[in-house]
Design a binder for these strands. Structure first.
Lengths: 335, 335
DNA sequence: CTGAAAGCGCTTACAG
DNA sequence: CTGAAAGCGCTTACAG
């Protein structure tokens, strides 16, 4: 099998022009069905493989979309982001695009270095998956390419973003806890770390407000510093009966700490998480949590980026995709 | 900022030819230093970005290496493989290449469908990360492209492979258990699932042989079916004092089962794992395990694939990279 | 229905 | 030190 079969090779064998071969292989008009079949089967026989690079050169597109994930998220919720990426590539594939993952090293983020892939024109657009530093997010916005934020949004910028409906997710979860008789409910998360954590907090807070429950100062428990590194959590003096955690991993950490301190879940304290990721079923009892609709999020992100490639002025704003509560065993009815 | 600045644009502004611009930007001989500097700074000012595709077309290389990971591994040890991928891209980058991850869907694996990326000539070589089905691995070998297996090898084929030294890792770990006074040591893993699991078993077995300890039939405990799906593990009638698990995740599952059945680790049973991945520190007590030298493995895989691109006949055979035992709290000295 | 010509942005080999 | 010519493999727009 020759390594480099081109359209021209096929054309010569059949005594036609390479234009005709191109048309046939791309199922375009202007070739008789008979000839088309002949060309296709010969291409197959000769082991012809389409050269995307040539097409790319022609129309100035790489047909690649870069999915950028800050390095520090790969340790944290790697299973989640990898799944998101998987969904993205699948959907991109339907549109003839390819998804390329780029793990953004902490150093590059600090130094404000854009991915080499950008400087080399290997991609047509960026999906930023997971919130980078403010400066880096600003930098991304100076790029003359379609950009979509996924799973976070930027407070000031007007970048199109697809996010989980963090606010309502946490709101509904907290409502559920209150229905189960809980009144002393703490929130676990650093409010200044990411927009998701902040919005989940606000949903929790809205639920408290609606039920006329006062938010106590020490009922917001810090789980990490502003860069995202976990810190030891401090229990409030008066223990709550339930904890709303900003994510499943933190719920997992919290449950470990509770159990080490002699508290039983859910007998003494109920715990809920967010994400329904690997940590949700790694804890025992398994976590009641919010399942993020990954497929829907990926679909939206891909749709936005593709439409922006065709029309650079297209904007979509902030789209929140609804999640769904998964009921498990980490909550006790204390009525 | 114009979106599409080419070498020609730069050349025209400076009244030179694009050949000169090309030479200058690539730091080649044949341009005066003065002109070179002028060109470089103008390129910077005009926001010039190199068009890799054009170069690719010229010399028939995409400068992409595809890292293929079977889908079922992404759930299992995702953290590990993502780290490996990260290392690979970093090292590839030093050589001017880019690493593209491709998660191989189960369906494509069954249907023996090669990645689209291959048919579209978007890559110059493949690193297969994680063992696919036998048929798929055979299929990969029919491809006219450099191929390196990473973290597994094929029994029959003669594909170059970089693996952890599973055999000696498990051997040394088992020796350690025996030094701590253990004699009733079970192995946890399906011997027919992957070559790693098999080799780790053999290392364990060698240690038993050397210490004249008989291998009992029911001391090999099945953890998954042949496709890799976990099954409920069955304890042997007479409980061992120690378990050698084929990986940390399985050690984690085992410890959960032990603790549910009322056994304490390490008081009643010692447990060791392999990989030193996220699960090693997710268990309590933390696992004594073998840390895989990811960087060294990635380095080798990249070196092999690059040299094979330059010389398709280059072969390297099977290279086993030594790991290192990490001592934690899951083993008790029972002497 | 079929094909000759031109071009995408770069590089190589050669001439001056 | 500098550049004109040709070519990588395809597609588009046009002519027949």
């Amino acid at each position: 099998m020759k390594t480099n079969v081109t359209m021209k090779d096929i054309a010569e064998k059949l005594n036609v022009s390479s234009v005709t071969v191109s048309k046939a292989l791309n199922d375009k008009d202007g070739v008789s069905d008979e000839l088309k079949e002949k060309i296709k089967s010969l291409a197959e026989k000769m082991g012809y493989r389409y050269n995307t690079m040539a097409k790319s050169m022609k129309d100035g597109r790489s047909y690649n979309i870069c999915v950028v994930i800050p390095e520090r998220f790969t340790g944290m919720t790697q299973s989640f982001y990898l799944k998101v990426y998987q969904n993205i590539t699948q959907i991109l594939e339907e549109r003839g695009y390819y998804g390329i993952i780029h793990i953004l090293p902490n150093e590059d983020e600090d130094q404000l270095r854009l991915p080499r892939i950008y400087h080399e024109r290997r991609v047509d657009g960026f999906i930023m998956l997971g919130q980078p530093s403010r400066a880096y997010s600003d930098l991304m916005q100076t790029i003359d390419m379609p950009l979509v934020f996924l799973d976070f949004y930027d407070e000031n910028g007007d970048v199109d973003a697809v996010i989980t409906d963090n606010f309502y997710g946490a709101y509904e979860l907290t409502n559920y806890l209150i229905q189960q008789g809980h009144k002393d409910i703490a929130y676990v998360g650093n409010l200044f770390s990411t927009s998701s954590i902040q919005d989940r907090f606000l949903g929790y807070y809205k639920s408290l407000l609606e039920h006329k429950i006062t938010l106590k100062d020490d009922y917001v428990i810090k789980d990490r510093d502003d860069r995202g590194t976990y810190v030891d959590m401090e229990f409030p003096k008066q223990m709550p009966t339930a904890f709303v955690c900003n994510c499943d991993q933190v719920a997992h950490l919290l449950m470990e700490k509770l159990q080490k301190s002699g508290f039983k879940v859910p007998e003494d304290c109920s715990v809920v998480g967010f994400d329904n990721d690997i940590y949700a079923t790694l804890t025992s009892p398994n976590l009641t949590t919010v399942e993020v609709d990954i497929e829907e999020m990926a679909k939206n992100a891909v749709k936005f980026i593709c439409e922006k490639m065709d029309d650079p002025n297209a904007t979509f704003g902030r789209v929140a995709v609804k999640g769904k509560i998964i009921f498990r065993e980490s909550v006790k009815n204390i009525k």
